[in-house]
């Protein structure tokens, strides 16, 4: 089946006074119809910039330097602004990280959701619009939709605002939903509710979702496939089972080790990955993770490895997977 979205060799940079910051340096992936794809990585890995590049919602200083974003037969990096606007909100919708600041404080929430529908369906009457908004509010479990329509964002809690954002994003039954850390700013119980709802609605609406997060636990709960990003590149891509059972990249291993387990003993402290992400004004020539990688060898810093296909859905970019890689101190031989 035709994928909903194909990203090919996407490169996005920010032009700053300190020079070009290469936030995304050649990312390729596909989103299949009806699947939830997770993109994981720490701050500055390029995951948000990738998603913003798809809808061209980046700041003026950012530029898509190279690559294609194929959606519905068009390359979104090249379509006119008008065509892009027709796609935004109607075919591809987005949920943002901070529900506190993502809604306009001066406009009633119901009106903000109604606007999303009205932009793309001008033929609808005011009553029809209201009806749709009430229905959406009901679906995302906002109590008393009629009464809440006229409420302002400041009268809502964070979780409720994120429900409004979800209602807004799903209003036009988009083919693709990009959720950029939608639960990061919420507390854990609310996070769980929102995730469950998102999954239920995704089934009902048959929407594909790109779910961006830094939380592998959330990915495990929600996604079918995962992309692990680091330093503006995809380090590993696999199904959820392969990522957790057979990770094939030291960075993924590091991420997995930093997830707290409920039965963990106090003596076994969480092991964070030492060091910090690379400076993207001068991106490393070799593997971006090499300076922090416990298995790094000389070649890692001087040359970037090619992707190795472990199976049809699993690829990873690491010198340890090279046929000539040494077997001792190689985690992927012992696993």
């Amino acid at each position: 089946m035709e994928p909903v979205l194909t990203v090919k060799n996407l490169k996005t940079s920010f032009m700053t006074s300190n020079g070009e910051v290469q936030a995304v340096r050649g990312v390729s992936f596909q989103v299949e119809k009806g699947e939830i794809l997770g993109i994981v990585g720490e701050s500055g890995s390029g995951k948000s910039v990738t998603s913003m590049s798809i809808l061209r919602l980046l700041a003026d200083t950012a530029k898509i330097v190279d690559g294609e974003v194929i959606f519905g037969g068009n390359d979104l990096t090249k379509v006119t602004n008008r065509k892009m606007r027709e796609i935004r909100g109607e075919k591809i919708a987005m949920i943002f990280q901070d529900p506190m600041s993502s809604l306009n404080p001066l406009i009633p929430v119901g009106e903000q959701v109604a606007e999303m529908i009205r932009v793309h369906h001008k033929e609808l009457s005011k009553d029809e619009l209201n009806e749709k908004v009430f229905e959406l509010f009901g679906q995302v479990r906002i109590p008393e939709p009629e009464k809440r329509y006229k409420s302002y964002p400041h009268e809502f809690s964070g979780g409720m605002r994120q429900r409004v954002m979800i209602a807004m994003a799903l209003a036009n039954r988009p083919e693709l939903l990009i959720a950029d850390e939608p639960t990061t700013a919420l507390d854990v119980t609310i996070q769980d509710q929102i995730l469950k709802q998102l999954r239920a609605l995704q089934k009902e609406y048959e929407t594909s979702i790109i779910f961006i997060t830094h939380d592998l636990g959330v990915v495990a709960e929600l996604c079918e496939r995962v992309i692990v990003m680091y330093g503006g590149l995809i380090m590993e891509e696999a199904t959820i089972d392969d990522i957790f059972e057979h990770p094939k990249h030291p960075y993924t291993l590091g991420l997995l080790e930093s997830i707290p387990a409920i039965d963990q003993e106090k003596a076994n402290r969480l092991s964070p990955i030492p060091g910090s992400p690379p400076d993207m004004t001068k991106p490393p020539i070799g593997c971006p993770f090499a300076p922090r990688c416990p298995y790094a060898r000389q070649i890692c810093a001087s040359e970037c490895p090619e992707y190795v296909n472990i199976n049809d859905t699993h690829r990873s970019m690491c010198w340890l997977l090279d046929p000539d890689a040494p077997a001792d101190n190689n985690p992927f031989y012992s696993l």
């Binding site: 919602l57 935004r88 919708a93 901070d98 600041s101 306009n104 406009i107 932009v119």
Partner: peptide
């Protein structure tokens, strides 16, 4: 530069509407 302006743009509003309405 506020987040809700990005939200308005993500709705598919024209830049004129984003400015005048939001």
């Amino acid at each position: 530069g506020q987040d809700y302006i990005r939200t308005a743009r993500a709705k598919g509003l024209t830049e004129l509407k984003v400015i005048t309405k939001h």
